[in-house]
Design a protein around this nucleic acid. Structure first.
Length: 338
DNA sequence: ACACCTCATTCCGCTAGTAC
DNA sequence: GTACTAGCGGAATGAGGTGT
């Protein structure tokens, strides 16, 4: 525990506490000789400026909150890393926290961050309740939603274009010759997320426009993990359903589908085309070679953080509504032999 | 005259202590 | 039970002192 204060350093260095404070600020109005002496004493006494007191005086924490749904999810971590880089460049720190898909925990995290006096927040919303957003509005905390946002949300966002993602998947499957497509969505706890619904709608609509019917029966609750994909494929096999193209709500689910299909003697990339979304690092691994839809998570995090900091510095509300395009990464799992 | 530095004061939000 | 006050640790700043 650091026990030295600015006064201790000032006493030992033979200067005032003001001079100690100035010594820790670059380009401040003290001589380099005094600065060196003060910093040397500070080092001897293991003194570090007290951030809490600094924040107390300034009325600002220079900290931005970043709340996601699942801290273990690789693309949330990827966004966090980029957002933190941008924040640091502007002299801000970032606190990262996960709601674990719970509206109650989400609101609790927002309240905690308000009490910590964060300057603003970047949000991956669980979309199950508007209470959290109402709380941020009540305390005039600037925020930007990233990745996706629910229908009732009226604030700023930098989101992925999930309609485009659904269409890219559908178009690719159709070109590969698929005529019996299915959509493997998240499990019941999460499949109301706008991202999954948008992808589902645009995927189905594209096929319907091309005269291929997809009904609710072809929308399979699978989940976002490998086991979920395996189990869902086993279920449809037992039911006797045969599909020639499957679009999964994420890459892990798609990997489970690849494995289960092979177990049934159905070869992905030959008998069935499989597409995931997120383009995780393992998807490109040659043994897996999963076709996936790449979302521009780094750009998304960077734009959101830049816009948020701009608004904080201007003491205004962020004003950005952007959807970033997705990109299809074609690999072996979806190349059907015609 | 100028650079460098000190001093005194104010401000911030919260809370323990005190007075009524 | 309520209201008020002091003090916590720094930053900021204007006024003023000191040395060259």
């Amino acid at each position: 525990m650091i026990k030295s204060t600015i006064k201790d350093v000032a006493r030992v260095a033979g200067v005032s506490d003001t001079t100690v404070s100035l010594a820790f600020q670059p380009n401040s109005r003290i001589s380099e000789r005094t600065r060196a002496r003060v910093l040397s004493v500070a080092a001897q006494l293991s003194y570090a400026p007290n951030l809490a007191a600094k924040n107390l005086r300034n009325g600002s924490s220079r900290t931005i909150g970043f709340v996601v749904n699942d801290v273990l999810n690789p693309f949330y971590l990827q966004m966090f890393r980029k957002a933190e880089d941008i924040a640091l460049q502007h002299g801000y720190g970032v606190i990262f926290a996960g709601s674990n898909w719970s509206a109650e925990k989400e609101r609790h995290l927002f309240e905690q961050m308000i009490q910590m006096r964060v300057c603003g927040m970047v949000l991956c919303l669980c979309e199950k309740s508007s209470d959290g957003i109402a709380t941020l509005d009540r305390f005039s905390v600037p925020y930007i939603a990233v990745d996706s946002y629910p229908g009732w949300y009226a604030g700023s966002y930098v989101a992925n274009d999930f309609c485009m993602a659904g269409e890219l998947a559908a178009k690719h499957l159709l070109v590969q010759g698929c005529r019996r497509p299915a959509y493997f969505t998240a499990d019941r706890a999460m499949n109301n997320l706008s991202a999954f619904i948008e992808m589902q709608k645009s995927f189905i609509a594209y096929f319907n426009r091309k005269g291929i019917e997809i009904t609710q029966a072809d929308v399979i609750e699978a989940g976002l993990c490998i086991q979920g994909g395996r189990d869902a494929f086993e279920r449809i096999s037992v039911q006797g359903k045969r599909y020639d193209g499957i679009f999964c709500a994420n890459d892990f689910c798609a990997m489970g589908v690849l494995e289960a299909a092979e177990k049934h003697g159905i070869i992905p990339g030959k008998d069935i085309a499989v597409i995931g979304i997120d383009d995780t690092e393992v998807s490109g691994f040659s043994k897996i070679s999963l076709t996936s839809i790449r979302q521009p998570y780094n750009r998304l995090a960077a734009i959101a953080m830049e816009e948020l900091i701009k608004a904080i510095q201007a003491d205004s509300i962020p004003n950005v509504k952007r959807k970033l395009p997705a990109e299809l990464m074609v690999r072996n799992s979806s190349k059907l032999e015609s």
